[in-house]
């Protein structure tokens, strides 16, 4: 459990930080990645998600393309948080994130920074933006 409450101001800063300086926004320069295309009919979002795996562990995760603030930050945070995790852990985390966005029961303990999207439901038109990177990653992992 987090030992302190994230304030709305801190949540804003985390989103803006990942939007203005995304850590994982790049095309892979090495081989060994699988990729999937994610696009939206109601937003401009149009990007690829890349995944590299070794022995069931995520060795690297990247994404690149055109995206709004919410999809940029959420996909970048996703990449941050799956690297080093097993597929099983990653899938569980993704499930909890999607549950949170859909305002269902969810396990907060695995979400880390991704908790900043807790209020996405207030802007229903952007729910897809917050989740598309995550569902794309889930699809990549389902194929395994």
């Amino acid at each position: 459990m987090p030992t302190f409450e994230l304030t709305p101001m801190m949540m804003r800063e985390i989103i803006m930080d990942h939007y203005s300086s995304p850590r994982h926004k790049a095309d892979p320069v090495k081989d060994g990645y699988v990729s999937v295309h994610a696009e939206s009919t109601n937003c401009i979002d149009d990007f690829h998600v890349y995944l590299k795996e070794k022995d069931g562990i995520v060795e690297d995760a990247l994404w690149n393309g055109v995206a709004c603030t919410i999809s940029t930050a959420s996909t970048d945070i996703l990449c941050d948080q799956v690297i080093g995790k097993s597929f099983k852990e990653s899938k569980y985390m993704i499930e909890q994130f999607l549950n949170m966005i859909e305002e269902k029961e969810y396990d907060e303990s695995v979400l880390d920074e991704a908790i900043v999207f807790i209020n996405t439901g207030k802007q229903a038109a952007r729910i897809h933006c917050a989740t598309m990177g995550w569902t794309a990653m889930k699809d990549l992992m389902e194929d395994k």
């Binding site: 401009i44 709004c68 603030t69 919410i70 802007q123 038109a125 952007r126």
Partner: peptide, 21 residues
């Protein structure tokens, strides 16, 4: 501000504008 984010801001103020292409 990215266009879609601007439209969301406008939505939060009750203003309906289109964003995108």
């Amino acid at each position: 501000v990215f266009a879609q984010d601007a439209a969301t801001l406008l939505n939060s103020k009750g203003i309906a504008c289109r964003s995108g292409q």
